[in-house]
Amino acid sequence: MSYNWNWPIFFSPVPSGETTYLFWLIEGLKFTVLLSLSAWVLALIVGSLAGVLRTVPNRFLSGAATAYVELFRNIPLLVQLFIWYFVMPELLPKSMGDAFKQSDPLFQQFVAAFVCLGLFTSARVAEQVRSGINSLPRGQKSAGLALGFTLPQTYRFVLLPMAFRIVIPPLTSEFLNIFKNSSVATTIGLIELSRQAQQLVDYTAQPYEAFIVVTALYLMINIIVMSLMRVVEGRVRVPGYMGGK
């Protein structure tokens, strides 16, 4: 194979001349991180709520939460993204839909990707939170109620603090997934990392350099997130409990 490696390509100016290809990559990294982190916050909030609701002794609430989780788990991420991006604006009240469609394309792409990734991941977070709560001894809930806590107080002071400690390891893998899954936003044109990789291939005809660097950036994100979560895990460790000695 004869391939002309050209690593300095990252420092040459883009066609418009304003900046370099390196800056494109940085821009992509920025959007990948921004999108993933904001969607992660949404996923944690909605997912915790849905996960808790699945465990409450109320058929209607737990049934609704189950339906929510099943809906978001059984439709491919890409299909969900296209539905948020292409379908939702049409189904909104006309004035809102039109306003959305006339807004900055970057804004449209980001909002659709944010809602999509956040809710998609929330269904997975909900499953982890539910199994975390269910893995606690049944007596813990009784003990909370017996002390006079209301059910919401029992969740807040007794069940959730332990459940969240238990689900940190599985949540770590969901957190990693959200960064990887954010690449799906390339399909609606959001300029995140994998979109920029494709752009560089188109513009520079140096595909390997672009792909290698972008892949390395994803690896780097992975390592940072894992070390971060390890620190969190250490911080919330309970002395004398399970692996927490």
Partner: peptide, 10 residues
């Protein structure tokens, strides 16, 4: 008072 104590571990 419960069989398994049920102190709050955290």
């Amino acid at each position: 008072v419960f069989q398994n104590f049920e102190l709050f571990p955290h």
